[in-house]
């Protein structure tokens, strides 16, 4: 990363804490990192390191107690680990939700939502409700919902963790294709090192109690990445070693 690169997101010494009686504790402490526009950045952290809190702070869904955040994005979208689909809406209406909120007319938003469903391979399920979909299908609907609003920052919160290996691999391939097509900035929380190395330009390694950044690894492998190549395994080893030192 060079200093002249445009940045989608810059965090400088950001801290956050819960203020209620039950969880009165610092969750994030002095978090500083930048996400260049159009890059793919992953965050790897142990459970309880405040990854989800960090995502919420970035999206201004909860306040931070100190530090500065520069948000150079206007249409953020998020794909949730828990899918977070609206159960009362059909697949098509879930995908079209953000478009509806931006006052797009029914015909246009349905057309666009159908396109996005097709991109994630679910055009045949548009009338289905989330409860009738598998985990992988729900995650794809979540991805289509995010893509529908043409986000300039896409946040993915452990998108593969609830999926079986085959579904996760397929979704990963789709995600890479979508990233290349749209050129958006992606920030992904993940806990699988090979996935992070395969997808990311940078990997941010966090530790817990309180959540803080321990190391930022640049992945300078050429794309498309050969996940069986020696340089790939070297990067995986490097990141694994950085994480092992923490524990």
């Amino acid at each position: 990363m060079t200093s002249t690169e445009p940045m989608s997101l810059v965090l400088s010494r950001v801290s956050a804490s819960y203020t209620d009686e039950i969880k009165n504790a610092a969750v994030l402490k002095d978090i500083s990192f930048s996400v260049p526009t159009g890059s793919f950045v992953s965050i790897i952290a142990p459970s309880g390191a405040g990854k989800s809190t960090l995502m919420r702070v970035i999206l201004d869904l909860m306040p931070h107690t100190s530090g500065d955040i520069v948000r150079n994005f206007s249409r953020p979208a998020m794909v949730f680990q828990s899918y977070a689909l609206f159960p009362w809406l059909s697949t098509l209406d879930n995908v079209a939700f953000g478009l509806r909120m931006s006052n797009m007319n029914r015909k246009d938003r349905d057309t666009l939502a159908r396109e996005k469903l097709k991109e994630v391979g679910l055009e045949h399920l548009e009338t289905h409700y989330p409860a009738t979909l598998s985990g992988g299908q729900r995650q794809r609907v979540g991805l289509a919902r995010a893509l529908a609003i043409s986000p300039d920052l896409l946040i993915l919160d452990e998108p593969f963790s609830s999926l079986d290996t085959i579904t996760a691999e397929a979704l990963k391939a789709d995600l890479l294709k979508i990233w290349r097509t749209y050129g958006m900035t992606i920030l992904m929380v993940n806990h699988l090192i090979p996935d992070a190395v395969e997808l990311s330009d940078e990997i941010i390694i966090m530790n817990k109690n309180p959540g803080r950044i321990e190391k930022i690894c640049t992945i300078d492998l050429l794309r498309p990445r050969d996940v069986r190549s020696e340089p790939f395994f070297k990067h995986v080893d490097r990141v694994t070693e950085a994480i092992r030192v923490l524990s």
Binding site: R56, L59, L61, P76, A77, M78, F80, Q81, S82, A84, L85, F86, W88, L89, F97, G98, R100, M101, S102, R145, I149
Partner: peptide
């Protein structure tokens, strides 16, 4: 997460009641 999804995708202000909280 559901609350956050509603906010991120635009169900804010009074529209939040109609499009998110009521259903």
């Amino acid at each position: 997460d559901l609350n956050d999804a509603a906010t991120i995708f635009g169900a804010r202000g009074l529209r939040r009641i109609h499009y998110y909280l009521a259903p």
